[in-house]
Simulated scan of single mutants.
Amino acid sequence: MAQHVAPPAATTPVVPAKLPLKVIASWAAFFGILMLVLLYFVGAEQGAVSVFSGAEVHEWVHDARHLLGFPCH
């Protein structure tokens, strides 16, 4: 039994879309600020520098503190 190989079809090169630097910078700033806020709540929201009174925030991020190496008790 003979096998037939079809010739490769003509393909056009795929050109990736270029994002403007302004779009990349705005998303980078957004995620940077978001990460700083999350780092604050995980690492420093307790004691003298707390924004919220009580221990609710501490309890929500307690395991994340230990996972990231922040002391909490």
Rank of each mutant, 00 (worst) to 15 (best):
P7T: 00
W27V: 15
F30Q: 09
L39Q: 12
G32M: 07
E45T: 08
I33L: 15
M1S: 10
T12V: 11
E45A: 13
H62Y: 14
K18R: 13
H73Y: 11
S50K: 13
V5C: 01
K22F: 03
A48V: 06
I33A: 14
Q3C: 01
A44M: 13
H58R: 12
V49Y: 11
P8Y: 08
L19C: 00
F41I: 10
P71E: 14
A10I: 06
P7N: 01
V49W: 12
P8I: 00
W60P: 03
K22G: 11
G47T: 04
A28P: 05
A64H: 07
L21F: 06
V61T: 14
A29N: 06
S53E: 15
A44Y: 09
V15M: 08
T11R: 01
A2R: 09
W60R: 15
V51W: 03
P71S: 14
V5A: 08
T11C: 06
H66Q: 03
P20E: 04
V51I: 13
D63V: 09
H66G: 13
V49F: 12
H73T: 13
M1T: 05
A44D: 05
S50P: 03
K22S: 08
A9T: 01
I33T: 15
V61N: 11
H58N: 13
M1F: 11
M35P: 00
V49G: 14
Y40R: 14
C72I: 10
A44Q: 05
M1L: 09
Q3L: 14
V5R: 02
L36I: 10
V51Y: 04
A55P: 15
H66K: 11
I33G: 04
G69A: 09
F52L: 04
V42Q: 04
P13I: 04
G32K: 02
E45P: 09
A17Q: 12
F30Y: 12
V42T: 14
A17D: 06
H66T: 11
P13M: 11
V5E: 06
A48P: 15
E45M: 02
L34G: 13
I33Q: 13
L21G: 05
S53P: 07
Y40H: 09
W27P: 13
A9C: 01
A48I: 11
P7L: 10
G32I: 07
F70W: 10
P20S: 05
H4Y: 03
I33W: 01
V51N: 05
A17L: 13
H62S: 07
F30V: 12
G69D: 10
K18D: 02
V57P: 07
G69S: 06
V51C: 03
I24H: 06
F52Y: 00
G43P: 02
Q46I: 14
G32L: 00
A48E: 09
A55Y: 06
G47V: 00
V15S: 08
Q46Y: 14
S50Y: 01
E56T: 14
P16H: 02
S26F: 00
E56F: 15
V42H: 02
P16M: 07
A64M: 09
V23I: 01
W27A: 15
L36C: 08
R65C: 05
Q3M: 08
A6R: 10
G43T: 04
S50D: 02
A17S: 09
L67D: 08
